[in-house]
Design a protein around this nucleic acid. Structure first.
Length: 404
RNA sequence: GGGGAGAUACCGAAGUGGCCAAACGGGGCAGACUGUAACUCUGCUGGCAAUGCCUUCGUAGGUUCGAAUCCUGCUCUCCCCA
C-alpha cells in the first residue's frame, strides 16, 4: 500500500485541479488506516456508445486509482439519456429508447474495460435511484439550490447573457448528477474540466443530504485531431478506441507536432522525464515524426495488439511515405453485367461510396482528384473499362478495390 | 398578462421586391507544397438527364408578371415590463 503522499503524487499527475486537496489527503489516510478503499465516482452518458481518446484521459486516471487499491463506481447515466439532454446547440437531440441505451451501455462497457480493471469496478445505472424519485422528492431536491448559483456556471451565464435559451431541464442536470453522488456515497469524483461546476454542485448536494462531500479531481479536455477544439464525435476530430488499428495510427500521425506533446502527456504511459527528453531531442534536430510514430504505435497497440499496430505502421509508411497503394482497403462489389462494356465514371464513384451525389462526383473529377489504377480521370462522362481488382481512388487517402 | 426583436445553406452571419442557389467567415472536401493526413497557398462546397432545368431562406396561406425580401395565420426563440 502506497503512502498518502505517494498516492497524491500519482493522482496529481496530469490533473488540472484537486478540490480540496487536503480533504483528499484526509480521505486517503482514512482509507489506508481502515483498509476500506475509497469510492471513486465517474459518470458516463450512454447516448454515444463510441468512446474516443478524449474519454480515455479520465479512464486512465480511474485505472490509476484502482491500481492504488480503490474502487471505481462507474455510473451509466441511462436515466439522463432517457430524458434527453437539450443543452448546447442541437435543439432536437433525440431521446433514446431504453433498448438503445442498454445496447450503448453494453458496447460502452466493452470499450471501457480495455482500460479499467473489472475486478475493482462497480457498474451502476442511475435510473435505479433517479427513476424512483417522486415529484415531492424532486421538489425537495430543487429547493436546495438557487438559480443565482446555477447561473454561475460558465456556459449558462454565457448563454443567458447571449440571449440563448436554457431549459429548466438543464438546471436539473447538475442536481441529478449531484444526487448520483449521494446515492453512491462517492468519496472522490473524476471529470473533465467542463464538469467542474457539476462536480462542485454534487459536493453541496451531498452536504445537504448529510453526507461527507466528495473530493474532486478534474482532468484536462483532450484537444481533437484539429488541435484546437476538444475532441468530440460531433466535431469529427476524434479518434475512437474501437476504430481499426490503421485508422488510429493514421489519425495520430496526422496531428500537428505541437499537439503531439500534449498527447504524450495525457495519453502516453511514458514518464514525464522521458517526454521532456524527447522534446529536447527534437529541438536539437531530430525529426519529430520519429517520436510521433512512437506515440502512434503505443496508443494503437493499447487498443488493438502489437502485431496489428505493427501492420498499421507498415501500411502508413508504405502509403504516405513511399506513396504506395495500401494492401488492404474497402472493396466495392459490382456484377459483371453492370460493367460489361465499361461503366461511366460517375456511376462508378457513387457505387464505390466515394461521393454522395453526381454533382460531387463531377466536381472531384474536375479537381483532378479521381484516379483509376493510378491514372487520373478528367472526363466526367468517361466510360471506363474495368476489371476485377481495379483500384478506384479519390484524393490521397480514399481507396476502393473493385470486386466483380 | 402587456410590449418589442428574431428564425437564412453543416455552423456563424449578410441580404429587406427582379442583377439570389443567396455576400463574407468558419468547417468540410480537393489540388499544390511537405517527413506528415501539420502549416501555407489555390479551387470547390443544394440537386439533376447540366451553357439549361428543379428544389431551398422556420411553417401554412396570400399579394405580385416576379417573393428570402411585402401581408396574414401558426410554431419556436430571445429581450423588456407586470
Amino acid at each position: 500500500m502506497k503512502t498518502v503522499e505517494e498516492q497524491i503524487t500519482i493522482i496529481r499527475r496530469g490533473a488540472v485541479q484537486i478540490i480540496p486537496e487536503d480533504e483528499l489527503r484526509e480521505k486517503i489516510k482514512r482509507s489506508i488506516d481502515s483498509g476500506v478503499p475509497m469510492r471513486i465516482k465517474y459518470g458516463a452518458d450512454p447516448s454515444a456508445p463510441d468512446i474516443h481518446l478524449g474519454h480515455t484521459v479520465p479512464l486512465r486516471k480511474l485505472r490509476e486509482f484502482q491500481d492504488l487499491g480503490h474502487l471505481v463506481v462507474f455510473i451509466i447515466g441511462d436515466f439522463t439519456a432517457l430524458v434527453g439532454d437539450p443543452s448546447g446547440k442541437s435543439k432536437t437531440r433525440k431521446r433514446l429508447s431504453s433498448e438503445e441505451i442498454m445496447e450503448n451501455a453494453r458496447t460502452y462497457q466493452e470499450q471501457v474495460f480495455k482500460i479499467l480493471d473489472r475486478e475493482k469496478t462497480e457498474v451502476v445505472y442511475n435510473s435505479s435511484w433517479l427513476s424512483g424519485l417522486t415529484f415531492p422528492d424532486v421538489i425537495d431536491l430543487t429547493s436546495r439550490y438557487t438559480v443565482a448559483r446555477m447561473l454561475e456556471r460558465d456556459d449558462f451565464s454565457k448563454r443567458y447573457k447571449g440571449g440563448k435559451p436554457i431549459s429548466i431541464l438543464e438546471f436539473l442536470y447538475p442536481l441529478m448528477q449531484g444526487y448520483d453522488s449521494v446515492a453512491v456515497k462517492s468519496d472522490v469524483e473524476l471529470g473533465g474540466t467542463d464538469q467542474t461546476f457539476n462536480l462542485l454542485v454534487a459536493r453541496d448536494i451531498q452536504r445537504e443530504y448529510g453526507e461527507t462531500p466528495q473530493a474532486i479531481v478534474t482532468l484536462p479536455l483532450l484537444e481533437g485531431t484539429d488541435g484546437v477544439q476538444k475532441m468530440s464525435k460531433s466535431l469529427g476530430n476524434y479518434i475512437g478506441v474501437s476504430e481499426p488499428a490503421l485508422d488510429i495510427y493514421g489519425k495520430l500521425m496526422s496531428i500537428s507536432d505541437d499537439l503531439m506533446w500534449r498527447y504524450f502527456e495525457l495519453l502516453s504511459a511514458r514518464s514525464m522525464a522521458e517526454i521532456e527528453e524527447a522534446k529536447l531531442e527534437c529541438a536539437s534536430g531530430t525529426n519529430p515524426m520519429v517520436w510521433k510514430k512512437k506515440l502512434a504505435f503505443e496508443i494503437t497497440e493499447r487498443f488493438s495488439s502489437a502485431p496489428e499496430a505493427g501492420t498499421a505502421r507498415e501500411q502508413f509508411e508504405s502509403v504516405h511515405q513511399k506513396k504506395e497503394i495500401p494492401e488492404e482497403m474497402a472493396t466495392v462489389q459490382v456484377s459483371a453485367a453492370e460493367v460489361s462494356g465499361g461503366i461511366d465514371i460517375i456511376t462508378l464513384l457513387r457505387r464505390a461510396g466515394l461521393v454522395n451525389t453526381n454533382s460531387e462526383a463531377r466536381r472531384k473529377i474536375q479537381e483532378g482528384a479521381v484516379r483509376i489504377n493510378n491514372k487520373k480521370i478528367f472526363e466526367h462522362n468517361a466510360v471506363i473499362p474495368v476489371k476485377d481488382n481495379d483500384i478506384i481512388r479519390l484524393g490521397k487517402r480514399n481507396f476502393r478495390r473493385l470486386v466483380l
